[in-house]
Nucleic acid binder design. Structure first.
Lengths: 234, 234
DNA sequence: GACTGTGAAAAGTTTCACAGCT
DNA sequence: AGCTGTGAAACTTTTCACAGTC
């Protein structure tokens, strides 16, 4: 790696802290899990990096490299046993565990989330819901009884909740997230269009359809994206 | 730019095709727009890369570099005029235009999307909705009348729709996307948990809360992410 | 004095290409 | 023969650091 002919002294060659897996790699694993699940459902018993790459639109080399961070799951000359690789990846991601999830905010969006059937099949269980509007407290939404915010700490502890989905108005989001962090929550899925600040070690992912749309319009302008000065207004 | 003392020969130093802006840069611009809007609402007249970086949790250098792909928007020694930079970025992203958007699929999710008030303030107008379930056709949802799929091509053309939001079951998503592409749609926001295949030049962004959750559980396992047999310390 | 804009260095990520196992 | 696993190369993205400008 130190191929640079210059530089007389010691070069720190290992860029990555040993044992650390790049975050981009982690972010791709769930997609591998999904494809493997589909292959399993379709009755496929073996696959290979070529086939997986086609499904995901990435190069076979990338898939092999990603997997190599965790071990050697394939058989040379044959490929991967779908069921085995799926089990390994789920294990790595912690998807063999069941995860209890709290939803904070039971407005229109929170309601939709609590009624959405797509989380449970993947091992996520929405087991609690909180709202600061007393009119909502006590209501039954998606099989869960809405509790007041004051009960959050207790319930999070009692029910071993480690993940929260935040669906409150932007103005309240940072406060709610601070409360959740204080309760020991370490992963947050945020639906508000804001950039929440959290301490180190707390993971946040945001669902932000407006940002997604806005990052596409750039490519939609009449005659292609305008380049630095030339091609001005449309 | 200052020292234009170019080298002796022709060196392909620029790895990037000239005039091309990296996609990661584009994906950050909407966030800059959002922060600048907030600063403007808060009455701030000027800002700088330091302040923007704090809000977005990125380095000031990155912000300056990102902006430098498009021009020189700051004043040395002073920073950026909030209003001006905001206008420039909106221009670059095409957010000064109004965009007509179609929603395909008016089930629970499509309903929630059509009733969500968060798109319009940003210049996106949900002006049409389609569903293949005739029981839904003719219903009025979020101020839009649901049309049969068969009318899609006509309506997309008539109403200059260039963006679609797809909220149909996974099994139908690829078919619907193919139809949309055939109608001339070039940007798609997909809510189904699948990896859609589209021709070159068509942009797709997916909203996928399950993938987001699954990419966080890795970091939640009891004693830190396990590394290939051994266990990483925390 | 303060802050931008930007080449150049560093860090990170992807792809290549091939030895080696089945 | 077919495909993995992996060092090394190629490429991309971020960060540094400072000349230049206000």
């Amino acid at each position: 790696m130190t191929s640079s002919s210059s530089g007389p002294g010691i070069r720190p060659v290992t860029a990555l802290p040993p044992g650390e897996v790049p975050e981009v790699v982690i972010s791709r694993l769930p997609q591998y899990v999904r494809i493997l699940s589909q292959l399993l459902d379709a009755g496929e018993e073996v696959t290979n990096s070529q086939q997986l790459g086609e499904q995901l639109q990435v190069t076979p080399a990338q898939i092999r490299k990603d997997l190599s961070y965790f071990g050697r799951f394939g058989k040379q000359g044959r490929g991967y046993v779908v069921r085995d690789l799926l089990r390994e990846l789920k294990q790595i991601l912690g998807l063999n565990s069941e995860w209890n999830v709290a939803v904070v905010g039971v407005g229109r969006l929170g309601n939709a989330i609590l009624n959405y059937p797509g989380f449970n099949p993947d091992g996520f269980h929405l087991v609690a819901a909180f709202d600061n509007n007393l009119a909502n407290v006590g209501r039954e939404v998606g099989g869960v009884s809405v509790q007041p915010m004051a009960e959050m700490a207790q319930t999070v502890a009692d029910r071993s909740i480690s993940i929260a989905i935040v669906a409150v108005p932007s103005a309240h989001t940072q406060t709610v997230i601070d409360q959740l962090v204080a309760c020991g929550i370490r992963a947050i899925l945020n639906y508000a269009p804001i950039n929440a600040q959290v301490p180190d070690g707390i993971r946040v992912r945001s669902i932000d359809p407006v940002l997604a749309l806005q990052s596409m319009t750039y490519y939609l302008t009449e005659d292609g994206p305008s380049i630095n000065g030339s091609t001005a207004a449309r």
